[in-house]
Computed example of a mutant assay.
Amino acid sequence: MLPLLLASSSVYRRDLLSRLRLPFICSSPDIDESHRANEPAVELVKRLAEQKARALAAQYPEHLIIGSDQVAALDGRIIGKPHTFENAREQLLAASGKRVSFLTGLALLNTKTGHCQVDCVPFTVHMRELDVERIERYLRTEQPYDCAGSFKAEGLGVSLFQSTEGPDATSLVGLPLIRLVDMLLAEGVQIP
């Protein structure tokens, strides 16, 4: 088996990938993550996931490189990571009682053969009706400022959900493991 490389510095993605009990290393790619004019969100995340994998290909010529990228969309527009308390409060207020769509791009590049599998895994969160007090209490407790949508689904953020729908709940955290296993199996990787 070719060694696995996760093209990410995300602690969330690293924790998810460790669930598969396969040895891997991490390296963070340096790419421009700008959204192109008129680029649909699905194409954006697929392009960025593949670019992340390909950015490390020369450095790791005999590896399977995993790239992933995620966006959240509310009312048809992309919302990014909030970075601040104020931005997170505004995002959660805007999302109150609504659907937030998450699109996670995934790429697996075999740098030995050049073969690259790319996909996008959707996931939807239906948010509860949230008031300012509850939002602020949540934000002070969990501080999800580095998370698209302003919540940590793997933590207390789940208390903000009414329901969820999608093929793979791990895609919500940023690395769709079910689809990744399909890709790894296609490359001949034996999953324990």
Rank of each mutant, 00 (worst) to 15 (best):
T141Y: 14
T164K: 07
H115W: 05
L177P: 03
F123K: 02
A58W: 06
P3F: 08
V189S: 00
S9W: 06
P23M: 01
M1S: 13
D69P: 07
L109Q: 08
E50F: 03
Q190T: 15
P192L: 02
N110I: 04
V71Y: 03
R140M: 15
L6V: 09
L44R: 01
A186I: 07
E133F: 15
I66R: 05
T113E: 09
A153K: 00
A148M: 03
E50Q: 09
A88G: 08
V121N: 09
M1V: 13
A7T: 06
S8P: 01
R21N: 15
R128H: 09
A58P: 03
Y145L: 04
L156K: 12
L56C: 07
L48D: 02
F102N: 05
Y138H: 13
V118K: 01
G105I: 02
Q143V: 10
R47N: 07
E142G: 10
K112T: 06
G166F: 08
P192E: 01
R89P: 02
L139S: 10
L2Q: 15
E90Q: 13
E142F: 10
V125W: 08
G188Q: 09
V181I: 15
R54L: 00
I79Q: 09
K52D: 00
L184H: 00
L92M: 12
I79M: 11
D75R: 11
P23D: 05
L44D: 03
L22T: 04
V132Q: 13
P176V: 11
C116S: 04
N38E: 14
E136W: 12
A55N: 07
A58D: 05
T124M: 12
G80C: 10
Y145F: 13
L103G: 02
R134L: 13
L184K: 07
R47P: 05
R77S: 14
H35L: 13
D119M: 08
A169C: 13
E86T: 15
R54C: 00
L56I: 01
S28Y: 03
I79D: 09
E50N: 10
I178S: 15
E154S: 11
L109T: 09
I31F: 04
G114Y: 05
S28L: 00
